[in-house]
Amino acid sequence: MFGLSFGERFKALRKEKGLKQQELCDDFYKVSGRKLSKSSISQYEKNKRKPEINTLMDLADYFEVTVDYLLLGTYRDRFFAHNSSIHDYILYLSDLFFKNPDIPQREKDIVFKEICMIYFDSLGI
């Protein structure tokens, strides 16, 4: 999910759950008690608008990601939404960094920063 916009990330999360837009409306209401229209979902996915902060927080809870991930998309938050091993995360980032020549330099810099942060976190720095 490199360089994706909010709308692209939001749509990918909906599809990952196997939901159509109306199904997301219905399920989201059952889980959060917050109404979400199919039109709103469509506008979010097309990057025509972003949700209000309270809706954004409920969406993050619903998709089991952080608000930062929804808005900015960090590798760490997305990975740990589905995995828990720091070892696996480092291997995942290393593969992205070292084995994929199609990743733009900007993305490689982000991945390198993530690897460094994990390393320094492990040292307690």
Rank of each mutant, 00 (worst) to 15 (best):
P51A: 10
F10H: 06
L59V: 04
R14E: 04
K50Q: 12
K15Q: 13
D27T: 03
K46A: 14
I125W: 12
E45T: 06
L70I: 07
A60E: 04
S5Q: 08
K48T: 09
F120M: 15
G124C: 07
F28C: 06
V65A: 01
S39H: 12
S37W: 12
G3K: 08
K11Y: 07
G33N: 02
F97Y: 15
D26C: 04
E107S: 13
R76S: 12
D27N: 09
L72M: 07
E107K: 10
P51Y: 06
Y29C: 13
L36A: 03
Y44C: 04
I41C: 06
I103F: 07
T66G: 03
R106Q: 13
S37F: 08
K113W: 07
G3Y: 03
P104L: 08
L13Q: 09
D58A: 13
T66Y: 00
G7N: 04
Q105W: 02
D77V: 01
G33D: 06
I103Q: 03
R106T: 10
C25T: 08
Q43Y: 14
G73Y: 01
P51Q: 10
I86M: 11
S39L: 12
I86K: 15
P101V: 05
C116H: 11
D58R: 05
D27G: 00
E23Q: 15
K99W: 07
I53C: 01
F120K: 10
T55H: 04
L24R: 07
S84W: 09
L93K: 12
V65E: 00
G73M: 05
Y89H: 11
E8N: 04
G18C: 05
D77F: 02
F2H: 10
A81C: 01
T66L: 03
K38Y: 05
F10E: 02
F6Q: 09
P104V: 01
K48D: 13
L24I: 11
D27Q: 12
I125L: 14
V67R: 02
S94A: 12
L56P: 03
L13M: 11
M117L: 13
G18V: 00
E23N: 08
M117D: 15
F120Q: 15
S5N: 03
E45S: 11
G33T: 03
S94G: 13
E107G: 03
G7W: 04
Y29A: 14
G7C: 05
S39I: 11
V65R: 01
Y75D: 14
L19S: 00
G33C: 05
G124E: 10
I86Y: 09
M57R: 10
K38M: 11
Q43N: 15
D61A: 10
K11N: 09
D88I: 06
C116R: 15
D61Q: 07
Y62M: 00
Q43C: 10
V111F: 03
A81R: 06
I110K: 06
A12M: 08
I41P: 03
L96W: 05
L13H: 02
L24D: 02
L59D: 00
P51C: 11
Q22S: 07
K38V: 12
M117Q: 15
L59G: 01
F98P: 02
A60Y: 01
N83V: 01
I103E: 05
N47T: 05
F80N: 02
Y75A: 08
